[in-house]
Design a protein around this nucleic acid. Sequence first.
DNA 1: TAGCTGATTGACT
DNA 2: GTCAATCAGCTAA
Length: 194
Amino acid sequence: MTLPREFYLRPTRAVARDLLGCILVSTHGGAITAGRIVETEAYLGPEDPASHAATRPVAARRLFYGEGGHAYVFRIYGLHQCLNAITGRAGRPGCVLIRALEPVAGARVMARRRGVAVDSVSLTNGPGKLAEALGITLRDNGVDLTRGPLEIGPPDAPREFSVGVGPRVGITRATALPLRFWIYRNRFVSRRER
DNA sequence: TAGCTGATTGACT
DNA sequence: GTCAATCAGCTAA
């Protein structure tokens, strides 16, 4: 089961919210690792000062303006990778940063990649951590999320959770916009809600 | 060419 | 709570 292309061809905010509860699956390295998405952030077009659509090199901008449903992977601080899902139709820039997962398969493999205990929240409770846990690298930049080593499937259970909304984390521009979404009271969310 | 920054993390006080 | 790791790409000169 994989989310159809049409899922991504909608306004970025709606995609970010609806991605909560969905299942991200990686088959990198011959092992299946998967997690439930519990935290996302929306990044819009050039009108959003925090978005890479405005600040990153041409190659990244081409992805941003490309068709939704593809992965955008970038390196931050020289050492960590972050995974995004491109949203909107071709010509409409936007993406959703996957910030945290709750492991549902392959936790032992994740633990080996991360070097932490198999039952630790530190497995996947941050964008750099989940990328490492699922074996995501810059080679995944541009891959199709509807068919490939990286896929996102629909929720594996009814969506019976509350959604938290608040300002994005870790950025220095446009810090007040309420574009971060998370599953309320999930222990894998990267920052504790009050 | 030199200096600085960042959608983070982990180690340490 | 503070701070270093680490590097591509941007800026100033």
